[in-house]
Design a protein around this nucleic acid. Sequence first.
DNA 1: CTGAAAGCGCTTACAG
DNA 2: CTGAAAGCGCTTACAG
Lengths: 329, 329
Amino acid sequence: MAEAAGVAIKTVSRVLNNEPNVREETRQRVLAIVKKLNYHPSLSARSLAGRRSFLIGLIYENPSANYIVDVQHGAMARCREDRFQLLMHQVTGRGEEMERDVLGLVDQTHLDGLIVTAPLSESADLMRALDRRALPFVRVAPNDVAHPTPYVDMDDAGAAREMTEYLIGLGHRRIGFIIGHPDHFASGQRLLGYKAALAAHDIAYLERYVRQGFFVFESGMEAAKDLLSQNEPPTAIFASNDDMAAGVLMAAHELGINVPERLSVAGFDDTYIAKTVWPRLTTVHQPTYDLAYTATNLLLQMLQTGIAPQSMRLGYRLVCRASTAVVPK
Amino acid sequence: MAEAAGVAIKTVSRVLNNEPNVREETRQRVLAIVKKLNYHPSLSARSLAGRRSFLIGLIYENPSANYIVDVQHGAMARCREDRFQLLMHQVTGRGEEMERDVLGLVDQTHLDGLIVTAPLSESADLMRALDRRALPFVRVAPNDVAHPTPYVDMDDAGAAREMTEYLIGLGHRRIGFIIGHPDHFASGQRLLGYKAALAAHDIAYLERYVRQGFFVFESGMEAAKDLLSQNEPPTAIFASNDDMAAGVLMAAHELGINVPERLSVAGFDDTYIAKTVWPRLTTVHQPTYDLAYTATNLLLQMLQTGIAPQSMRLGYRLVCRASTAVVPK
DNA sequence: CTGAAAGCGCTTACAG
DNA sequence: CTGAAAGCGCTTACAG
């Protein structure tokens, strides 16, 4: 390759890495030969010599398929721009086993950086271990903001509060709430938003209208059946994600309760499922793709500059579809 | 590392690669130090010296999220067993642009092998280009079986025929069919199965009961509205995948047609969506995870032995849920 | 059964 | 602005 262009291998390296100090004419000549020969520098050789792998990892635990696919594509899109490759990694185990799994990945592949999704980002032990290895990482929301490393998130509490107020605005007073997985920081934030909205409208917070869910369909269905089986059941149910809200719809169908005529249902995330169930779900649009794209962007910036960029908060919006209506008389 | 164990670096290499000719005692000593020092050999150094990357690529075009996540996890699970890493890659463009995208990935990362999902596996040009690079690859079903490289698939035609016969068994005679994306070989196979079942039961194949879809929700919904708006509408609709079947349910809901009382609906794939819509979908269970796991297994075998293993066909099964019933009087 | 030498294809650090 | 030398951490091919 270098011989074909009549330059030293070092010059080719300079051109391909966009380094300065190459005459424009030389650059063009090299570029032409590169194209002609369809030359691609070897990733492994670059990695070994340059002590960087051009590999970014994205670790996740057990999220809903529609959510993780959005995350994946957002991160991939940003990686592609800088010719980085993205390594998706589903962690196994919990606690120490999870840590060993992640660190094994890091050590073996010599990742340049890591994107950590919730709730993995809430393991203080893992964060500490990553710090110890001096591995740059960015957390993708929603998660705990206490750690000093950069993150991208949205205002979960604010969004949940807005959704709850939207339901209150429709005249609902008995509003059920299904909490997300207890391991997720966001679950607590969304619950907080729900409570804040009630308080702001002088509606008492009643435990009997609140159930613990686990971010999965079945848990939403179970919780809804439980909520709806009591005297004075809620006239609206707000589930902490779309999968659980879809479960609420399923429960309503099975119980013969019409949505939204007799029961309003709201979700959170605005994943694919929200548009495919009937009636279509009113939900909070979480900019999942953008969150991942932005997180990757911050990570890449950090790798280039060596300094940690500012964390970012992205916007959300309510999406009102067919699963909510004014409270029945 | 080698010094700590008091052996040559080559011996460590032998132990870690499970090569023969190491005394058991030596092996144990090295293993102990490896564990103690938490030593992980550098992937890039191994790749450079050994001319292999321990990286497998999985390319896909634009499948439904639930499908690709199953594929991804199946392939990941098998990779993990042999300490290979999986690089997911969504191709951009079509035709020549798609080819350049894939070959760029291959050349840059020096993948050891590739898993090709449909409909990419149907591009003769791409297959030829991969062959020219002597890159081992396996195709994950469903796809065209003409090419000599190994693949894993299921009997799409047989499954579609069985499902159609199930509907016929329920008394349906006017059975609508929504074809899958025209780029997918499997789409034609499923149509063939539908036709075969009709023929076997002396039911005329009528074009007015057949519509072209594209494997996405909206296309199923549009097709169903069209099918149901005619005189003597079908009493059952069989969609070539679950996403489209969910679209059929949505259309039925919007038209006020009760499922399954007045209309039976069947899907194909048995992805997550089949269990979350109401009523739950009767569908063909496609062993997506196993298909991907098995494809990866064949690829890894091929890498080790250098010879192409036998292709495999995996089983399917009908899953009868709540969206189908006997024909209305 | 074990090891010393050469080399994989780049980048780093330096010289000119 | 350009290049020659050294070296990244392993594996290959060979010798003993």
